[in-house]
Simulated scan of single mutants.
Amino acid sequence: MGDAAQVLDAARARGWRIATAESCTGGLIAGALTEVPGSSDVVECGYVTYSNAAKTRMLGVTAAALDAHGAVSEEVAREMAHGAWGRAGVDLAVSVTGIAGPGGSEFKPEGMVCFGLATPTGVITETMQFGALGRAQVRQTTVERALTLLLQACDS
């Protein structure tokens, strides 16, 4: 909760609002933020878009991106973050899409998570390889990284 509280304080200091767009974490990032009392002045909403259809319907992720790169890709993370940012009308939106496990493939192994961060100046993406830590730990590590990205954006 400490990292979430720091994110909220930093966003509050700038007068910023936040949205989340989550796949593999299933709402855990929004949950971490809203666990902190008083978070309602910063957190606008969270989109849990587990299926590809939901990513398209709720966030505007294109079929072209999904077909060309797959749901677990920086391209889809970019479109998820941008969609949440625009649709929610917020200052910051973070997105995550990944393989929490068990399973995966040679090219998209368990523990691979793609992040997107939409700000007023654009969208950045990154891919992290957390490894086969087990489903719960991949999801928790993903939440921690997403909070770090939000905090860095607020402090920049």
Rank of each mutant, 00 (worst) to 15 (best):
Thr62Tyr: 07
Val61Thr: 07
Cys45Ala: 10
Tyr47Phe: 15
Glu35Asp: 15
Tyr50Asp: 08
Thr20Asn: 08
Arg57Met: 10
Val48Ser: 12
Thr56Arg: 15
Pro37Glu: 11
Ala21Lys: 07
Cys45Trp: 05
Glu44Pro: 01
Asp41Ile: 10
Cys24Asn: 08
Ala81Gln: 01
Val42His: 06
Glu74Asn: 12
Ala68Val: 05
Glu75Leu: 11
Leu66Asp: 05
Ser40Met: 02
Glu74Tyr: 05
Tyr50Lys: 06
Gly26Glu: 13
Ala54Phe: 03
Leu28Glu: 05
Val43Gln: 06
Gly26Val: 07
Ser40Asn: 12
Ser51Cys: 10
Glu22Val: 08
Glu44Gly: 04
Glu79Trp: 02
Thr62Asn: 03
Ala53Lys: 12
His69Lys: 10
Lys55Met: 14
Ala32His: 13
Ala81Cys: 03
Ser51Arg: 08
Met58Thr: 13
Ala32Val: 14
Glu22Cys: 12
Ala54Tyr: 09
Ala71His: 00
Ser40Tyr: 03
Ala81Glu: 08
Ala21Ile: 06
Thr34Glu: 02
Met80His: 00
Leu28Cys: 11
Lys55Thr: 10
Cys24Leu: 15
Met80Ile: 02
Thr56Trp: 02
Val72Asp: 11
Val43Glu: 02
Ser51Val: 03
Thr20Gln: 01
Gly60Asn: 10
Glu35Val: 00
Pro37Asn: 03
Asp67Gln: 12
Asn52Gln: 01
Thr56Asp: 00
Val61Ser: 01
Met58Leu: 15
Thr25Gly: 13
Met80Trp: 00
Tyr50His: 14
Leu66Pro: 00
Leu28Phe: 05
Asn52Tyr: 03
Glu74Gly: 15
Val42Tyr: 00
Ala77Leu: 07
Thr49Asn: 04
Val61Glu: 05
Gly26Phe: 14
Ala68Tyr: 02
Tyr50Phe: 15
His69Gln: 00
Tyr50Ile: 10
Gly27Ile: 13
Glu44Thr: 11
Tyr50Ala: 14
Lys55Gln: 02
Glu44Arg: 13
Ala77Asp: 00
Arg78Trp: 14
Cys45Leu: 15
Thr49Asp: 01
Glu75Phe: 08
Ala68Gly: 06
Ala63Phe: 01
Ala32Pro: 05
Glu35Pro: 00
Ala68Pro: 04
Leu66Glu: 07
Ala81Arg: 11
Ala21Ser: 09
Ser40Leu: 10
Leu28His: 12
Cys24Thr: 03
Gly60Asp: 02
Val42Cys: 04
Trp85Gln: 11
Ala53Cys: 09
Gly38Cys: 15
Ala54Cys: 01
Leu33Cys: 11
Val76Ile: 05
Gly70Lys: 11
Ala32Leu: 14
Ala84Val: 01
Ile29His: 09
Glu74Val: 12
Ser73Leu: 13
Trp85Glu: 12
Gly60Pro: 11
Ala64Leu: 14
Ala54Met: 08
Ser39Met: 04
Gly70Arg: 05
Ala54His: 06
Ser51Trp: 10
Gly83Phe: 09
Thr20Val: 12
Val72Tyr: 09
Ala30Phe: 04
Trp85Arg: 02
Asp67Lys: 09
Ala68Ile: 07
Thr62Ala: 15
Gly46His: 09
Asp67Cys: 05
Tyr50Arg: 08
Ile29Tyr: 04
Gly70Ala: 15
